[in-house]
Computed example of a mutant assay.
Amino acid sequence: MRADAKKNRDRLLAVAGAVITEQGAEASLRDIARRADMGLATLLRHFPTREALLDALLRTNFDELTARAGELEQSSSPEDALVSWLRDCVACAHEYRGVTALMTAALEDPESALHASCVTMRAAGTGLLARAQAAGAARTDIDGTDLFALVAALAWLGDQPSLAPRADHLLDVVASAILTGAGKGDAGGGPEGGAAVGPARS
C-alpha cells in the first residue's frame, strides 16, 4: 500500500472509531467520510462494506482478547481467568455501541467480514470456560455459544441509558451464576448446587 493510501486508511479508521462510538454501529458511512475530509468513494475503496470497516476497527481488539485468554490461562486460576476474560470481552463489545448485533449475526455468516475474528474470539472464551469446567469451577450446562450470548446481552445493557448504571452489578451476578461452589462461597449450576453434566461446546 502506498504511503498516501495508508495515511488515508488510518485517518478513516480513526474517524470511524470516534463516529461509531458516538452514533453506534449504524453510523452513516457518508458522515464518516465527510468528517475525515474525504469522499465516500475513497472510503469505499478501502472498506467496501460497513462490516469490512467494523472488522478493521474490531480485529485488533479481538486479537488482543484472544491473546489475553492465553495469558490468563497461564497466570490465573480457572475461575479468575474466566471472569476476567468475560469482563474484558464485555468492555470490548460495549466500546462501539450497537456492534453486538452485528457480531452475533457474523458468527452465523461465513461470508461476513467479521466472521473469522468473531469465531476466534468465541473459541478463546470457550477454551477458558472448558478449563474452568474441567477444574469443577464453572457449571457445565453452558457452552461457548452461551458465553458469547451473555457477553452480547451484558454489552447491550451497557448501551441502554436507563440500565447502564446496573451493568457492572449484573455482570457480577452473571459471573457468580457461571461459577460453581469450587473456588467461591455459593454453588451454582446443578439442581442441588453442583454443576449439571455436559461438556462445553464451541
Rank of each mutant, 00 (worst) to 15 (best):
A105G: 08
R122M: 15
A124P: 02
A106M: 00
L147W: 13
G188Y: 11
S176E: 15
H94N: 09
T104R: 15
G136D: 04
M103R: 15
T100C: 11
D168R: 14
Q160H: 10
A175R: 12
D159G: 14
T100M: 11
A138Q: 00
G98F: 08
C118L: 02
G189R: 09
D141W: 02
E111M: 09
L129K: 03
A175Q: 12
I142Q: 01
G127V: 06
L163V: 08
G136W: 03
S162H: 14
S162G: 10
V174K: 04
M121R: 07
T180S: 15
C118V: 13
S112L: 00
A182W: 09
S176L: 15
D168T: 14
R97Q: 12
G183N: 05
T180C: 09
A106C: 01
T126V: 03
L107S: 09
L150Q: 02
G125W: 04
Q133V: 06
V151A: 00
G185A: 15
R139I: 07
T145K: 13
L157K: 10
G188T: 13
A135E: 08
V173H: 06
A164F: 07
A153S: 14
A135H: 07
G181V: 14
W156K: 12
L157N: 06
L129R: 04
A177C: 11
L170I: 13
M121C: 09
A135W: 04
A167E: 08
M121D: 01
T140I: 06
T140H: 12
A152M: 07
G136I: 07
D141F: 00
A130N: 00
D186H: 15
H94S: 15
T180R: 10
V173T: 13
A105L: 07
A105F: 02
S112P: 03
D159Y: 11
E108H: 13
A175D: 11
S162A: 15
V99G: 00
G188I: 08
A101L: 10
Y96A: 07
W156Y: 12
I142T: 03
L157A: 09
A153Q: 12
S112V: 01
D186I: 14
A187F: 10
G190M: 06
S117L: 03
A177D: 05
T126I: 03
D159P: 08
D146F: 13
R97P: 13
A130T: 03
A105M: 08
G144T: 04
